[in-house]
Design a protein around this nucleic acid. Sequence first.
DNA 1: ATTTGACACTTGTCTATACAAGTAATATAA
DNA 2: TTATATTACTTGTATAGACAAGTGTCAAAT
Lengths: 243, 243
Amino acid sequence: MTAKYLQIAADLTNKIKHGQYKAGKLLPSEPVLSELYRVSRETTRKALAELMSAGLIQKLKGKGSIVLDRTRFAFPVSNIETFDELNKQEQMHATTEILHFSDTKMPSSITDQLDITDPTAIFVERLRSINHEPIVIDQDYILKKYVPHLTIEQAQKSLYSYFERDLGLEIDYATKTITVEPADKKVIQSLQLEDTNLVVVVRSLTYLKDTSFFQYTVSLHRPDKFKFVDFARRKAQHGRIIL
Amino acid sequence: MTAKYLQIAADLTNKIKHGQYKAGKLLPSEPVLSELYRVSRETTRKALAELMSAGLIQKLKGKGSIVLDRTRFAFPVSNIETFDELNKQEQMHATTEILHFSDTKMPSSITDQLDITDPTAIFVERLRSINHEPIVIDQDYILKKYVPHLTIEQAQKSLYSYFERDLGLEIDYATKTITVEPADKKVIQSLQLEDTNLVVVVRSLTYLKDTSFFQYTVSLHRPDKFKFVDFARRKAQHGRIIL
DNA sequence: ATTTGACACTTGTCTATACAAGTAATATAA
DNA sequence: TTATATTACTTGTATAGACAAGTGTCAAAT
């Protein structure tokens, strides 16, 4: 049973996307929505908080909740996303080629900082292409204890759906860094780089719901195909929640 | 008067940063914290929700709130930040050189999408250096109606503190895109690029609390000095809040 | 020894109520 | 006409209470 406030958030999200509530206009007020959905005002507010953090609305004290126009900003990569999910949203012909698949250990750069009991891992390197153009190389190090039976066939599809749907692993958060670095010859060749030897490197440390470290991913993007879209809210200054 | 839950969040944040609550350990339970701060449990929960969205803790149903280890991830640029703020956090010698300062109009690429009544704007181009190394060129287009009296002296310092402290403008959110693009000769020279002609381009559209568009910024980063750090939470799948 | 169940904790959701504070339009007083 | 209250909305904060659901422990039954 999903929570009421999530159902309401989902419903409002759909109505916004289908233009039932239009950008620039106000949503019905909290008491009205509460009446509509037959819930308390606090529950309505929780639903609106979801839309707020998703960047779909902006709440204005004394006025109401304005629907923001985010249609232009296609996909917020600040979420943890999958190549596959991205593939469904945009309608493109995406393929995956496995370059490597083997047992290995977590890189020491990771184990040094994270005290991991058993660094035994599976290494998967995949080349992703869209419309026959190479776009990105994904290098995944996955702790073996979580995926002892991972096969090359599953890696061919989506790792995330295998983790979540098949294994029931609950992925919860990740820390990411984006940098620009020179690539070695193999990568230059795989990505068919021409005028440059630079690639965009996205490094992700992925954690499960119980805060245990799970996966380290290095993504090497062709710079001319890379785009990162973000929606950032300015945090409350007075509260000093900023890090 | 700041809200109680923000004060509590601030206090907990400090205690975590000063090691009073240590990474990997559990915070006191919600009822205990409520007792401690003499507030209701809902208020405590609001404070914890702040820490949660800041990536400082992870809540586990049935167990408690674990303090996450984020010391390694120095600054999350997913927030809206200033060169100056960044400068204070890291302790570095930062300088700003004004390259251009003039009246202009918002670029049509912006006005095309945003229906702006008066595109009259001020253009400020600044070269930021750290330890005498050029790092980034900031090109700001600010709607003139908000800053009719902006001077070159203020631009020399921090635009943000001028906006917020002096003018009382409340900046609230921004949409950002990060791409990698070829630079023209002027930029190459200003940033002292050598082996490459690529720069990292961060484009930001900044909005005020009342959702009015305010400022367009193009930041051109030297690729070898660029680093973007992000903390991403996986959104609830069932609720389909994902865009 | 192993399983089962009860129990005491934890966080998650939801309600009903109250008051504070910002916004906007309208009526009132100068 | 112009300012000033009044009023009726809006969202923001905070409380107290209730029950659901996940976790871990420990005792009792198998």
